[in-house]
């Protein structure tokens, strides 16, 4: 299996020094658990802060040199179309730049690949398949089997990065390739007036304690309800009706 891990030029949140984002190093760790041929890929003006990924289980880093303000998407897409890795791993969000977290989605659209976000565990799932554990809100996990090629983003709850190994970083190879310079990504984001979103807040019985009211309010804000895993259709329908009656949508 050929894996490409996308690496970004991060900055340390406190010292602001170049430093690989932890979540990308976690992606490297997930990749190195798969007994695969792993390449790092970075598009940017230099390898500052990126090269340290070579100390965390990566042996080869391809550096697509582009101007500092170029959109890396163009270069990355061009290279990934040419190298066709089976699996592309990215961090959930960069660290120290724009940090929009959109690049993996834009890249998946450009390459026509499925994308699965917030992965914490990857296992080989048979020929051309991958068994993946995905993080859902509120601590839930979902097991997904997906067909390769695909693009996955890694969640910070994944296992900690492999410790930095000075000698491995020293041995690691950086291949400089010419990237494609392009227009900077649109600098002016679309502006809209702020609109307050309606919040569905469950009402607790009048006269209930403050703790009850707080519980009702916070639980509703967090989604509320019960989680049923693979319920029978009739049971699921009953649950939905009960819930709708509870919150007063259905009268009878």
């Amino acid at each position: 299996m050929k894996i490409t891990v996308l690496l970004s030029a991060g900055r340390h949140p406190v010292s602001a020094r170049p430093c690989p984002p932890a979540v990308e190093l976690q992606a490297l760790r997930l990749a190195s658990g798969l007994a695969a041929d792993i390449t790092g890929l970075h598009a940017g003006p230099s390898a500052d802060g990126v090269a340290d990924a070579l100390g965390h289980g990566l042996s080869t880093l391809n550096l697509l040199t582009i101007k500092g303000d170029s959109d890396p998407l163009v270069s990355l897409a061009a290279t990934l179309k040419a190298t066709t890795p089976d699996l592309i791993l990215a961090g959930r969000q960069a660290q120290g730049g724009e940090d929009s977290g959109l690049l993996p989605y834009a890249l998946a659209r450009e390459l026509g690949l499925p994308i699965l976000a917030d992965v914490v565990r990857i296992d080989a799932g048979g020929e051309g398949l991958l068994a993946v554990e995905q993080v859902l809100p509120r601590g839930a996990r979902r097991r997904v089997v997906l067909r390769l090629p695909a693009l996955l983003t890694v969640h910070p709850a994944a296992p900690a990065p492999l410790p930095f190994t000075f000698a491995a970083a020293r041995r690691g190879k950086i291949t400089q390739l010419q990237g494609v310079d392009s227009q900077p990504p649109s600098a002016a984001p679309e502006e809209r007036p702020y609109r307050k979103r309606p919040k569905l807040i469950a009402k607790s019985a009048a006269g209930a304690s403050a703790a009850d009211r707080l519980k009702a309010a916070t639980e509703a804000a967090a989604g509320g309800g019960r989680l049923l895993v693979n319920p029978a259709p009739a049971e699921a329908a009953r649950e939905i009706i009960t819930h709708l009656r509870e919150i007063g949508v259905l009268r009878r």
């Binding site: 406190v14 010292s15 100390g55 965390h56 990065p161 410790p163 930095f164 190994t165 000075f166 000698a167």
Partner: peptide, 26 residues
């Protein structure tokens, strides 16, 4: 540490913070 990266589990984050922030707890 330098060749194998085999440091104790809790020492690795401290060494990483020392490397990037010059303080063991960042």
């Amino acid at each position: 540490t330098l060749e194998l990266g085999a440091v104790p589990e809790k020492a690795a984050p401290a060494l990483a913070e020392l490397r990037y922030a010059d303080d063991a707890q960042g």
